[in-house]
């Protein structure tokens, strides 16, 4: 190996002096080969411990979600409006026998007075997913500042990474108890931020 290094240095000088680089490349290749051979030797006969750490990752497809409350019929209350553009993608590995949940809450802003914003998850898309993807909570949650479960029973799984992979989230926004609260509604534009959390597995 020392010899190879010396040759390498020599040729490097030559290369700098504008001589052929071909030999240089070959030499680097032989150096790598040598290293590989050595590595093989090193691992032979040793104990190999394979460790899979539990981890989770969560991401959305960044779909812009804009909802508008309006009516075009005189006498009618503003109708509920829905948006299902958002997909939540996760990767999860958990210790055996443990689960995670996806929860959601409002972290910034608040739902306009006189209205309610609900959220419900569809089961994970199947195209590019695998593993134990959990079960959506069937009843839409009314979003608030407190985390509420959207999907439960998530174990080791992945949802896929495409734009329309993952759990499709449906926001529904409408007047809240209009017979009593409709007068609280005020025309304006509101921006709120919803935080999706994939929780720690319940074995920890």
């Amino acid at each position: 190996m020392l010899l190879q290094l010396l040759i390498l240095l020599h040729l490097l000088n030559n290369f700098i002096m504008k001589k052929s680089g071909l030999i240089f490349i070959m030499l680097v290749g032989s150096l790598l080969l040598t290293t590989n051979a050595w590595t093989q030797d090193w691992t032979a006969g040793d104990n190999v411990t394979l460790t899979v750490q539990d981890f989770c990752l969560i991401e959305t497809n960044y779909a812009p979600v804009a909802l508008t409350l309006i009516t075009s019929t005189a006498g009618a209350a503003a109708a509920s409006t829905s948006n299902s553009d958002l997909f939540v993608k996760i990767s999860s590995i958990v210790p055996g026998g443990t689960n995670r949940e996806i929860t959601a809450r409002i972290s910034s802003g608040s739902v306009p007075t006189g209205t309610a914003l609900t959220l419900v998850s569809a089961p994970c898309t199947t195209t590019n997913s695998g593993g134990i993807l959990g079960t959506p909570v069937a009843t839409p949650i009314t979003l608030s500042a407190i985390d509420q479960d959207l999907v439960i029973g998530i174990a080791t799984c992945y949802t896929g990474t495409g734009y329309n992979d993952g759990y499709q989230m449906t926001y529904t926004w409408g007047p809240d108890s209009p017979s009593t609260n409709y007068g609280l509604i005020e025309s304006n534009t509101y921006n709120i931020i919803v935080v999706f959390t994939i929780t720690a597995h319940d074995g920890n």
């Binding site: 990752l57 969560i58 991401e59 959305t60 960044y62 804009a66 309006i70 025309s187």
Partner: peptide, 24 residues
């Protein structure tokens, strides 16, 4: 502290214009 957020993927979409449609 299991609930500590280790990595946050922060996606805040700011719309550059308000989405008020023409008033009815």
């Amino acid at each position: 502290y299991k609930k500590i957020v280790l990595l946050i993927s922060l996606v805040v979409l700011f719309f550059s214009f308000l989405t008020i449609v023409p008033a009815q």
